[in-house]
C-alpha cells in the first residue's frame, strides 16, 4: 500500500461518483458541479501516476497539465453558469 495507490483509488472513486451523478441528475447546477468533480478525479489519477513513491517527487509535466486543467475548467464553468443563469432567468419573465 503506497501513497499513489491510495490516490489512484480516490481518483477513480471521484470519477465514478461524478459519472453516476451525470447519468442520474437533470439539475443544471448539479451537473456542472459533477463535471467539476469529474475533472478533479482525472487530475488526481494523473498526478498519482506522475508520483514517484521512491523519491517522493512528482513529475513536473503532469503538474503543469493539472494546472492547465484547473484554469480551463474554471473558464468553462463560468461560461456554463452564465448560460444556466440566462436560461433560468428567462423563464421567469
Amino acid at each position: 500500500m503506497t501513497t499513489d495507490l491510495v490516490y489512484h483509488v480516490a481518483g477513480a472513486g471521484l470519477t465514478g461518483l461524478a459519472l453516476w451523478r451525470l447519468a442520474t441528475c437533470r439539475d443544471a447546477l448539479r451537473r456542472i458541479m459533477a463535471l467539476n468533480v469529474l475533472a478533479i478525479g482525472i487530475a488526481m489519477v494523473l498526478l498519482a501516476s506522475g508520483f514517484d513513491a521512491a523519491t517522493g517527487r512528482t513529475d513536473p509535466v503532469p503538474q503543469a497539465f493539472a494546472l492547465t486543467g484547473i484554469v480551463v475548467l474554471v473558464s468553462v464553468t463560468a461560461a456554463l453558469l452564465a448560460l444556466a443563469e440566462r436560461i433560468g432567468g428567462r423563464s421567469n419573465d
Binding site: T3, D4, Y7, A43, L47, A48, F51, G56, R57, T58, Q63, A66, L67, I70
Partner: peptide, 8 residues
C-alpha cells in the same frame, strides 16, 4: 500537497 504538487 501530499502528492508533492504544491504549485497545483
Amino acid at each position: 500537497v501530499r502528492l508533492a504538487a504544491p504549485d497545483v
